[in-house]
Design a protein around this nucleic acid. Sequence first.
DNA 1: GTGAAAGCGCTAACAC
DNA 2: GTGTTAGCGCTTTCAC
Lengths: 347, 347
Amino acid sequence: MSKATIDDVAKLAGVSIKTVSRVVNNEANVRDATRARVQHAIETLNYSPNQSARSLASRRSYLIGLLYDDPSLYEIPSSSYVISIQEGVLKACKSRKYDLLIHPCFYRDRHIANEIRTLIEHSRLDGLVLAPPLSDMTRILRAIEACGTPLARVAPGSGGDRHPVVRTNDREIAAQMTRYLASLGHERIAFITGHEDHKAVANRYLGYEDGMRESRLKLQERLVCAGDNSFKSGERCAMRLLKGRSPPTAIFASNDDMAAGVIRMARQLGLSVPEDLSVAGFDDIPLAQQVCPSLTTVSQPLAEMAELATTMLIDELEGSSGSAGPSCIEASLVFRESTGPAPGSGA
Amino acid sequence: MSKATIDDVAKLAGVSIKTVSRVVNNEANVRDATRARVQHAIETLNYSPNQSARSLASRRSYLIGLLYDDPSLYEIPSSSYVISIQEGVLKACKSRKYDLLIHPCFYRDRHIANEIRTLIEHSRLDGLVLAPPLSDMTRILRAIEACGTPLARVAPGSGGDRHPVVRTNDREIAAQMTRYLASLGHERIAFITGHEDHKAVANRYLGYEDGMRESRLKLQERLVCAGDNSFKSGERCAMRLLKGRSPPTAIFASNDDMAAGVIRMARQLGLSVPEDLSVAGFDDIPLAQQVCPSLTTVSQPLAEMAELATTMLIDELEGSSGSAGPSCIEASLVFRESTGPAPGSGA
DNA sequence: GTGAAAGCGCTAACAC
DNA sequence: GTGTTAGCGCTTTCAC
């Protein structure tokens, strides 16, 4: 029963509605005794402010929108990615008393800018959090900025913008993983790239190149295979890489789904992991612990990134000065069973 | 710029705001010519109604809340379950022009009723969709009904309530899977139960009993093992079942995560699936296709259930008469690689 | 410290 | 068919 209004409370407490409003919003300029009296009335009546009225008057909805690319729309079932993002955003929302509205969309949709514009105009959002790969697309950023809606992004781009951006060290950590594989004695280290529209994933390839160079290993085009982030593309690439002559002894896939596909294919080809082939992934999704052998991978702090981005957005909404600009949350390597010494490296 | 108001449109079109309102809300009693003129003005001004104002005046927010148990809160990472539910709810919301607010919570939280009450009072929701196992808990249902908020549930309980409930035929389909295993010559068919608080999952056990009885196989207590829906509990149960004497030749787990755990453990114990052991799961999550061998399972139409529940809720909100009462969307068996003839059954 | 008055932009009820 | 008049329940501005 959200029946009681601010008038009821004011009457019961013997004050004006403005004073009630002050108490509710924790504003200054209320004597302690008055405040207590109002508090009491609020509790007695079980009063809770009407959000729509509040929104209308204050032009703030306490609603954050989360925009992400919905993998289910094109059958790449990496649900844990979405869940991690949501988890982080929700955590920030909860602690700041905002509600979360979710809006998955298809990033390649030609009308996506319009869709988002409609969402902004039609829904009463205070701000928007953008997840990758949506957060990489200038067309979308333009549309949102044109609407003047505050936003924060989880994205690799440095941006240099006037809105908060949170990224992780994809490139550096991918280089580190590559060097780790090299340190195990692997020389033919293959790489499976991810979907080209996904900039963060693209950075992982750059990291691979860095790592190979730093380990003084030769980059070979035939050891690089183009995946699309899906399990199936991992299988396909593994097949191609392993069937060639002088096949790799290690495969580094730019995400876990593809790495899991590699493991499955390796097994079907009669190879043992990690004895015959080392496999590394990226993301540390739950699947990484469930495949056999479990996957050496990079723990990507997706939830933390989303949480930070959201917190920064809310800070901005509330004028808590600018913690704006780009931030970075560092990823880390997770060593499990799928990697080991290169065959014949004396182990 | 959601700057233009209904007054601006009215002025430009040379009509009253009420007429604009009629056009915007697709009401009758507007001459075609007038309607066109108003439409034109709307487009010219790029007008879009202010939702907060609309909510305040009409007491409708066009906001649906989705309440679900958040697996990440206690480390059972079955994200695909959440995603499927969201997917269904979102689809219904989209087609009916509602927005979706998500609210995960911990179903065993002692203060959950309060949390939900706060959510309802504080947020301006038109209705609530409840996902299992929250949807099974009378304590929660009571709290929501006491608030008078319309709701719909995805739940096994027949309910007999005055709100929509959508269920699936867990029990019957589990019996069918059991009979299928029996038809392959298996006699010692083990079952791994799920989390006890999850009624739908509990029904699957009843179906197993039915299926065993119908196949004239003996129910043996030692062939039933208690899991908790997690991958790890699947591994644990498999270990216990397979290490005993006269171990089962088939294991039916009440969800895919546990079934995947069984497969992993079987492999570690040196058993081949399905040659030495058949494994069946339930849910058909993406993982079912990614494990090796891929999992024979039950395709649970979670997204469809959620979509139907949401549609029924919205129907009710809009007074489109009652399609209320319980509905059922049927699950079906999916045959993959993890099941085969019983060892020594002449195959 | 506190209150009165004036909206926020829309829908609802009823008059015309 | 169309317009007028009141609110919806809150915040804001400014006076006291």
